[in-house]
Amino acid sequence: MTHPTDSSALKQDHWLKRYYFTRALFSIVWVAAAIVIGSKSPVIAAVLLVLYPAWDAAANWVDANASGGLQANRTQRINVWASGLTTLAVCLALTAGMNAVLGVFGAWAIASGLLQLGTALRRWKSHGAQWVMVLSGAQSALAGGFFIAQAQKADVPSIVNVAGYAGVGALYFLISAIWLTVSLSRRKKASA
């Protein structure tokens, strides 16, 4: 991996650090709300389940635009659409029950995980902490398969099933943010 030192590359690394911290914070708050409030209130659970892919769509859109635009970031452009369509699919699935919702989340986790993996591989040479995003994308795709399998069972899942997935995602984003923070600090010391 190369460590760019020009100001635009450093600016992009600072952006990614803030972006990863923001994604981690959102996911941590979402998980807490899902466990504390959503597990007791079906209405709040429904709102949170719709909010999660909508947030992902918005976050990917913002990141792509801050990283050269949607045209330059094909995997994120596709992820924006996939997450947006998932938001609508979750709204529809809520009328059929939590098994359907978990099935939608499973399909989305597979697609968005593979797209995140593609984005991380594209960024690998120019930015640090991408190994964590590679792991996160792969884990997301695997979790999606698990969700689909769970959705086929007679047991009715709850928002807590999705909260575990979101919690692991938060951990990956937090590790990436910390990794970039350390990397940027080391580069600053090396150039001083």
Rank of each mutant, 00 (worst) to 15 (best):
L121Y: 13
F173C: 11
V62Y: 09
N161F: 14
G118W: 10
A129R: 06
W15S: 07
A66C: 14
A58Q: 06
I78S: 06
I175Y: 09
A9H: 13
Y172D: 03
L180M: 11
L51D: 00
A24D: 04
A82V: 15
V62I: 15
V134M: 15
A93D: 01
M133W: 12
Q116C: 09
A33V: 04
W15R: 06
L115W: 00
A45W: 03
F26S: 04
A120I: 14
R186I: 07
V104Q: 02
A72S: 12
V43C: 02
A163K: 03
A163G: 04
L25W: 09
A72Y: 06
S191P: 00
R74I: 13
A33Y: 05
V162D: 00
M98D: 03
S140V: 04
A163W: 09
S176C: 11
A141M: 06
I178H: 07
S83M: 04
R187C: 01
K125T: 07
S27P: 00
G106D: 05
R77F: 11
L85I: 13
S67E: 07
L16F: 13
Y19C: 09
A58L: 14
A34Q: 01
Q76T: 09
I35Q: 03
G137H: 04
Y165V: 09
S158Y: 05
A64Y: 05
K40N: 12
I35K: 01
D63E: 13
L48T: 00
G144D: 05
L102Q: 03
G128E: 10
L114R: 15
V80L: 06
T5E: 12
V62M: 10
K125S: 13
A166K: 07
Y165W: 15
L88P: 11
I44D: 02
G106A: 09
L85S: 03
A151R: 01
F105V: 08
S67R: 12
G144H: 06
A46V: 01
L171H: 03
L51C: 06
L180T: 01
I44T: 10
I148K: 00
V62H: 04
T22H: 05
R18T: 11
S158L: 04
S158P: 00
F21W: 10
V80E: 01
L85N: 01
H14K: 11
A89L: 04
V160A: 15
R186F: 04
A58E: 06
A54H: 03
A166T: 11
V31P: 00
S112G: 09
A54K: 05
G97Y: 12
Y20F: 14
T87H: 07
R186Q: 11
A58K: 09
L16S: 07
Q152R: 15
D13E: 15
F26C: 04
N99I: 10
V104L: 05
